[in-house]
Amino acid sequence: MSRQTSQRIAFALLTFLAIVVMVPIVLVVAYIIVQGIGAVNWEFLTSFPRNGMKEGGILPAVIGTVLLTFGTAIASIPLAVGAAIYLSEYARDTWLTRSIRLAIINLAGIPSVVYGLFGLGLFVLFLGLGTSIVAGSLTLGLMTMPVVISTAEEALLSVPQRFRVVSRSLGASRWQTIRQVVLPNALPGMLTGVILGLERAAGETAPILFTVAAFYLPQLPKSPLDQTMALPYHLYVIATQVPGMPLEIQYGTALVLLVLVLSLNVVATVIRSRFRRRRQW
């Protein structure tokens, strides 16, 4: 076989494999759209469930997921960004930083249901926050943190070292250098990481199962210490716990959750590509 022929075969094979990767996602999305689009309308998004959730809409679940996503952002971003700055800009390679890194890697590998149980033990029971938005947000925040730390650290490290040296040589302190040169240039990358982390949090069921999610509530939460309904848990409930649930409402709910999460993904992609076009190095 000539070299050209084997190259052509290799390319064809790789292209085929890359296309195969796309198939499941396209199928899942297409199937859910086809099955669920009929249920989704303005009323579905803006009204409460009725008649044992077999009719009506999903408003409280949508609101709950939005609230939890915000709560997760508040709980995780400051800590995660701070940790990333420390690791990338200040920490030298010592046993301490090596253990911190090891801890982060391991945190990322913990199953989400374990986070849920941990949240139940620490936030709900021990700290007495009860089953509440605060407890759920903290639990989700904890779960999100490793992802955000790793991507934020990567974004910080991608700012060329030479900018730091130049800034210091012009009499800037280490903090001024971080503030003026490193952070502005790392920000879009960090933002992308944050959004991807939040996206995962928005779609998780297990961590909110014991810490915040309500089976059904007749009203919207009034304080951060209230329970709330949330889309992923609501979907689980109507798919498994409610006999005689119309299929279309189940798929409609899944579609709304999917669109919510994917739109966060699109925002992240837009931020990233805009920055790439604008950046000056």
Binding site: R162, F163, V165, V166, S167, R168, S169, L170, G171, A172, S173, V181, N185, R279, Q280, W281
Partner: peptide
Amino acid sequence: VTELRRRVGMVFAVPIPLP
């Protein structure tokens, strides 16, 4: 040291404008 570096400025081999 920051004051020292203001008194003793440096130009590098490769020009590195900040972004």
